[in-house]
Design a protein around this nucleic acid. Structure first.
Lengths: 146, 146
DNA sequence: CTTGATGTAACAAAGAATATTACATTAAAT
DNA sequence: ATTTAATGTAATATTCTTTGTTACATCAAG
């Protein structure tokens, strides 16, 4: 199965927050409009991004803003913040290998470290891409439109 | 969401096929016993591994065997064979970003290449781990038990 | 022609992602 | 103070995917 769209939505959210910060109050409804999902879905993600210290959300008055420079935030930070993957594990291991079988009772020992390696390779790459990079490129694409 | 356990099950299957090839006929029921899932689940995976040219399955008489040396087979081959991920894409992108929003209509352009990069990092690492490595280690763990 | 397998369709059950409704709570503006 | 426009979150619904199961046609060997 694929990694939840919560992840790409969260990136989309942050990109909007930065792109529109001077021109609009970026509310959950505003974001829901750009992303085309239900505002409650957005609010849940905003909560998680807030809990991770990535953004600030104004109660009552409304609107979200970056809590720290986006240069410091990587895709990995976002990925972790929105918990796209159960218990942080990329691979779902079959639950009950048979302990009476020599392979069954050793398969975890053998595979766990290798799966970790693969997961780490992926997360390392996520860590190399900053939100700034994404926002800069987005701006370029938008400018090119005019 | 996590990558389907079909993947770890497939690796488990191949490890059993190799480990028990001299002592047992490795049927779907046999495998189901070691892995602790329904035999039909196994048969479906065996079909896919067969289609990928990784194993041979004997109709009628029963039993599965490696079709080519396991040294030549990587975890990536297995991963691809059993299609753990929809359309080969690791990340599920939200389906309908709003084309009327400057960010919405450009987010794909910006993110697609980066997500590809991440996916490739992960698959490259999968490609570096051979089934032989896994089988050798399994044997070591089993031998250490005695 | 019996036996013990595979191949596969069809369906059931369970679980997870996403969507939606509803409403209490908040903070600013009037 | 009251109104207004938000957020926060619980509860529930819906849809989708995975996994499990039943059933049976097909096969190959003895």
């Amino acid at each position: 199965m694929q990694i939840s769209s919560r992840f790409t939505i969260a990136i989309h959210i942050l990109t909007c927050i930065e792109t529109f910060k001077n021109d609009y109050k970026v509310t959950s409804d505003f974001l829901a409009g750009s992303i085309n999902v239900n505002p409650v879905v957005i609010r849940r993600l905003l909560s998680q991004l807030k809990a991770a210290g990535i953004i600030e959300v104004a109660r009552g008055t409304g609107g979200a803003n970056a809590a720290r420079p986006l240069k410091e935030i990587t895709m990995l930070d976002v990925y972790r913040a929105v918990e796209c993957v159960d218990k942080g594990e990329l691979f779902h291991f079959h639950e009950n290998p048979n302990p009476k079988c020599p392979v069954g009772r050793n398969i975890h020992n053998v595979l766990d470290s290798k799966l970790d390696r693969v997961q780490r390779a992926m997360e390392d790459e996520l860590g190399r891409i900053s939100m700034e990079e994404i926002i800069t490129e987005t701006q370029q694409f938008i400018n090119r439109e005019n």
